Amino acid sequence: MMGIMQISPKTAERLVRDLSYPTYEVDGNSKLIYKPFVNVYLGAAHLKWLSNFEQIERSEEFMVRAYKGGTKKATHKSTLKYWHNYLSVKETLPTRTVFEVAPVPNALSASATAVSTRKRTNPAKITWDSRTSPEDMEEMWNNANVSKEWNKSGEKRGKVRLSHDTEKRPYLSRTEQRAVAEIILAKHFSTSVVKPTVLCAIADVVSMRFVNGVGQRTGLMGIDYPTARDLGYKGYIVKSLEDLTTPFVSMYFGAANVAWLSEYEGRERSPQFVVEAYISGPQNVNLQETCPRWLKFEEALK
């Protein structure tokens, strides 16, 4: 394997000769493969070919594992670790800026202002009350488990602190997360089959309960602005990306997304379909392939 994209001379020659990628000629001169532009070009060409291998639209997992071990080992255990490593690296990539995510002009300016303000705010001073409506805070205090936890830690009405990790990132305790899920479902999805345990497990997988989200996933439930807008649910109004870092708002749209996916295209869907579709999109679900995040979900559900 050669170069930063680890392309073999045999693969390079096949791409150029047989698959009509002639921008860079490498036939007979394998040293050209080491050139960065040539190498990345061939790597991209190979991925494009894998994406439609045998005229079948392939999943991201198939492409990555086939890139490593060849198409015959795309589902073999020998490439599974490579896929896990790929996911780990992917999740550490920098978050896209708000300007790329929110397409509505007013939302853009509002989000930009909110992000700018957040950077100037001491993270340790972010409270539940600053991220939650008075009505929802009252519901939280009325929850027996939450009030017990808050009273034990010395919280006062109007000044309830959020928990923070060693990097000062705010997160929800499991008790708080469960309460938010139960309140949202009781108020807005009382006729739905969505369960609070499912929402909590999804939150564990996509955000690790961090209020602002992780990586490219926004908020507790990892819901982005376009998804929240397109779902068409009006229980909470989202004017900017910043609104989706509010626990109740994020949980609401997460529940809405789960409810929608549960009957995707008019069919009752399995829990595995719903979870994988929630994380990767319904068009990318392949229930015959291993999904590490489904395994993580099952672990979180226990």
Results as ranks from 00 to 15, higher is better:
residue 100 E to D: 13
residue 112 A to M: 06
residue 135 E to V: 13
residue 98 V to E: 13
residue 113 T to K: 11
residue 58 R to F: 07
residue 82 Y to K: 05
residue 76 H to I: 00
residue 71 T to E: 08
residue 98 V to L: 11
residue 52 N to D: 04
residue 116 S to Y: 14
residue 67 Y to P: 05
residue 92 T to D: 06
residue 129 D to F: 02
residue 86 Y to S: 01
residue 117 T to F: 14
residue 129 D to G: 02
residue 65 R to T: 10
residue 57 E to C: 12
residue 97 T to Y: 12
residue 131 R to A: 09
residue 103 P to K: 06
residue 91 E to F: 05
residue 127 T to D: 05
residue 139 E to I: 01
residue 74 A to V: 02
residue 132 T to N: 01
residue 117 T to V: 15
residue 119 K to Y: 14
residue 64 V to I: 07
residue 89 V to R: 02
residue 135 E to S: 09
residue 69 G to K: 08
residue 83 W to T: 04
residue 105 P to N: 10
residue 118 R to T: 15
residue 77 K to H: 09
residue 47 L to A: 12
residue 131 R to K: 13
residue 121 T to Q: 11
residue 127 T to H: 08
residue 74 A to R: 02
residue 139 E to L: 07
residue 85 N to Y: 10
residue 70 G to T: 00
residue 105 P to Y: 06
residue 87 L to W: 03
residue 99 F to P: 01
residue 52 N to K: 11
residue 89 V to A: 11
residue 88 S to L: 09
residue 99 F to W: 14
residue 86 Y to E: 00
residue 83 W to Q: 09
residue 96 R to T: 12
residue 126 I to A: 07
residue 100 E to R: 03
residue 79 T to I: 12
residue 111 S to M: 01
residue 76 H to G: 09
residue 77 K to L: 03
residue 139 E to S: 11
residue 67 Y to T: 09
residue 79 T to D: 06
residue 140 M to S: 09
residue 102 A to D: 15
residue 119 K to S: 15
residue 138 E to R: 09
residue 67 Y to N: 02
residue 58 R to C: 02
residue 50 L to H: 04
residue 52 N to Q: 10
residue 46 H to D: 08
residue 62 F to G: 02
residue 106 N to D: 15
residue 46 H to A: 10
residue 87 L to T: 05
residue 57 E to R: 14
residue 84 H to A: 04
residue 127 T to P: 04
residue 119 K to Q: 15
residue 48 K to V: 11
residue 114 A to Y: 10
residue 56 I to V: 15
residue 124 A to R: 11
residue 120 R to T: 15
residue 78 S to I: 00
residue 89 V to K: 11
residue 96 R to P: 04
residue 46 H to E: 08
residue 55 Q to W: 12
residue 136 D to A: 01
residue 91 E to H: 06
residue 126 I to D: 01
residue 75 T to N: 07
residue 99 F to D: 15
residue 94 P to D: 01
residue 132 T to R: 03
residue 68 K to S: 12
residue 138 E to S: 10
residue 66 A to W: 04
residue 97 T to N: 14
residue 80 L to K: 09
residue 140 M to P: 05
residue 91 E to P: 03
residue 60 E to D: 08
residue 120 R to M: 15
residue 105 P to V: 12
residue 53 F to W: 13
residue 107 A to M: 05
residue 119 K to P: 05
residue 136 D to S: 02
residue 102 A to E: 14
residue 137 M to N: 00
